[in-house]
C-alpha cells in the first residue's frame, strides 16, 4: 500500500524525494499556493498549517515525516463562498494589507483559539491553571510566531477577538 498524507481530506502519495518539505509539497507539487513561503526557516509563520489539529511551520518539516497525518491548509478552512468564521472576521476587520502573511495568520489563529479553549497557558498567562481569556495580551503573545511585514497587527488582533467573542457567546 502506498504511503499517503491527507491534505484537506484528500489522500496524496508521499513524494519520493525525502528533501521535499511539507511547504514545498503543498505549493509546488499540489499547487495549493495559499500557504506562503516567507523565510523558509521557521521565523515568520507565513507557512503555518494545521496538522492533526496542531499548528506548525510547514517549512521546517519534511512531507515524508507526515505519513498518515491530516493536514489542513487555508484552502481547507473555507472557500470564498463559504468562508470560515476566522476568514470572515479577517475580511470584516481588514486584517491585512498585502495579504501575504494572511493565510498563515488565519491558520494560526484558528488553532490558537482551540488552545485557549483547552485551557493551555501561554507566557502571558498570569497563572498556569486558570481560565484563559482571549485578551489582547494573550492574543499578541500566542500569535508572536506570525509576523506581518505590513504591520496590520491591530486589525489582526481585532479579527481574532471578534471570533473569540462569538465562540464564547
Amino acid at each position: 500500500m502506498a504511503e499517503t498524507i491527507s491534505i484537506n481530506g484528500t489522500a496524496h502519495p508521499i513524494p519520493e524525494d525525502p528533501r521535499i518539505t511539507l511547504l514545498d509539497f503543498l505549493r509546488h507539487d499540489l499547487r495549493l499556493t495559499g500557504t506562503k513561503k516567507g523565510c523558509d526557516h521557521g521565523q515568520c509563520g507565513a507557512c503555518t498549517v494545521i496538522v492533526n489539529g496542531m499548528r506548525i511551520n510547514s517549512c521546517l518539516t519534511l512531507a515524508a515525516m507526515h505519513e498518515g497525518d491530516e493536514v489542513t491548509t487555508i484552502e481547507g478552512l473555507g472557500t470564498p463562498d463559504a468562508p470560515s468564521p476566522m476568514q470572515r472576521a479577517f475580511l470584516e476587520n481588514d486584517g491585512y494589507q498585502c495579504g501575504y502573511c494572511t493565510p498563515g495568520q488565519i491558520c494560526s489563529a484558528t488553532a490558537m483559539l482551540g488552545e485557549i479553549a483547552n485551557g493551555w497557558p501561554s507566557d502571558a498567562s498570569e497563572t498556569l491553571d486558570g481560565d484563559i481569556e482571549a485578551t489582547g495580551d494573550e492574543i499578541r503573545e500566542r500569535m508572536s510566531g506570525n509576523l506581518c511585514r505590513c504591520g496590520a497587527y491591530a486589525n489582526i488582533v481585532a479579527a481574532i477577538r471578534d471570533v473569540a467573542a462569538e465562540e464564547s457567546a
Binding site: 521557521g42 509563520g45 496542531m54 499548528r55 506548525i56 494560526s108 500566542r142 508572536s144 510566531g145
Partner: peptide
Amino acid sequence: GATQQLRNK
C-alpha cells in the same frame, strides 16, 4: 521559548 508553532513540533 520560540513560538507555539515551533513548540508544537
